[in-house]
Amino acid sequence: MSKDHQDLSPVDRAILRIVQRDASCRLDEIAEEAGASIATIQRRLRQLRENGVIDGETVLVNPQSVGQGMTFLILVELERERIDILDAFRRKMAAEPHIQQCYYITGEADFALIALAEDMDAYQALIQRLLFDDKNVKRFRTSVVMDRSKVSLNVAV
């Protein structure tokens, strides 16, 4: 099976909907809801993981409960867009624990970042280290998230 959506069976799609909702769901619960045997669910989950349809499994942590009460959307424009410079920026963002998401985008900015910080002082220190000290960052704009109305990485299947 490939990553192509046409290759996903109705059982695969049911499994994906269930585990996106709750990755800790037991096999017997998935089997009952998906209308398949436990053995089928085990086999299909293994294949979905091996084929890269399921990229990983994670736990959602409430940022405020661990002192990361502020969320920021940062649009970054780089001076140059050579592949080595783009890759270096991607690696730096991937290595930074306060950057939750990093997207290479089209339009006026080159990257869109979702960042977390304890407060404005912590955010200032973060952007100083990541953006102001980077000679290839031409400019960036920040929006402070006022309300986390929906937070999800779920994919409609």
Rank of each mutant, 00 (worst) to 15 (best):
M1Q: 10
S2E: 14
D4H: 13
H5F: 11
D12C: 05
R13Y: 05
A14Y: 00
I15N: 00
L16D: 01
L16Y: 12
R17K: 11
I18C: 11
I18F: 06
I18S: 01
V19L: 04
R21E: 12
D22E: 15
D22P: 08
D22N: 15
S24G: 15
S24M: 12
S24P: 01
L27R: 03
L27G: 10
D28K: 14
E29L: 07
E29V: 11
A31C: 06
A31R: 03
E32W: 07
E33V: 09
A34L: 00
A34H: 01
G35I: 05
S37E: 13
I38P: 01
I38S: 12
A39C: 09
A39D: 15
I41W: 03
I41T: 09
R44H: 07
R44E: 11
R44N: 13
R44Q: 15
R46V: 06
Q47I: 08
L48T: 12
R49P: 03
N51C: 07
N51H: 13
V53D: 00
V53S: 02
D55T: 12
E57C: 07
V59D: 10
V59W: 09
V61H: 13
P63R: 01
Q64L: 09
S65G: 03
S65I: 04
V66D: 04
Q68G: 08
Q68P: 06
G69Q: 06
T71P: 01
L73Y: 02
I74R: 01
I74V: 13
L75W: 05
L75G: 13
V76P: 00
V76I: 05
E79V: 12
R80A: 09
E81Y: 04
E81F: 01
I83Q: 15
I83T: 14
I85H: 11
I85W: 04
L86D: 02
A88E: 08
F89I: 10
K92A: 15
M93G: 00
M93D: 02
A94M: 08
A95S: 10
A95E: 13
P97G: 06
P97Q: 03
H98Q: 15
I99T: 02
I99L: 15
I99N: 14
I99D: 02
Q101T: 14
C102L: 11
Y103R: 11
Y103K: 10
Y104W: 09
Y104Q: 08
Y104V: 05
Y104M: 12
Y104E: 09
T106P: 00
T106N: 13
T106A: 09
A109E: 05
D110I: 04
D110T: 05
A112I: 10
A112R: 07
A115V: 04
L116H: 03
A117Y: 02
A117P: 06
M120F: 09
M120Y: 14
D121I: 06
D121N: 09
A122Q: 10
A122S: 15
Y123T: 00
Q124I: 08
L126K: 00
I127V: 14
Q128D: 04
Q128T: 06
R129I: 04
R129A: 08
L130A: 01
L131Q: 00
F132D: 13
D134F: 02
K135R: 15
K135H: 10
K135V: 11
N136M: 10
N136K: 02
K138L: 05
R139E: 01
R141G: 10
T142G: 03
T142F: 05
S143C: 07
V145Y: 00
D147N: 12
S149L: 08
S149K: 12
S152H: 07
S152R: 07
L153M: 11
N154R: 12
V155M: 06
A156C: 06
V157N: 07
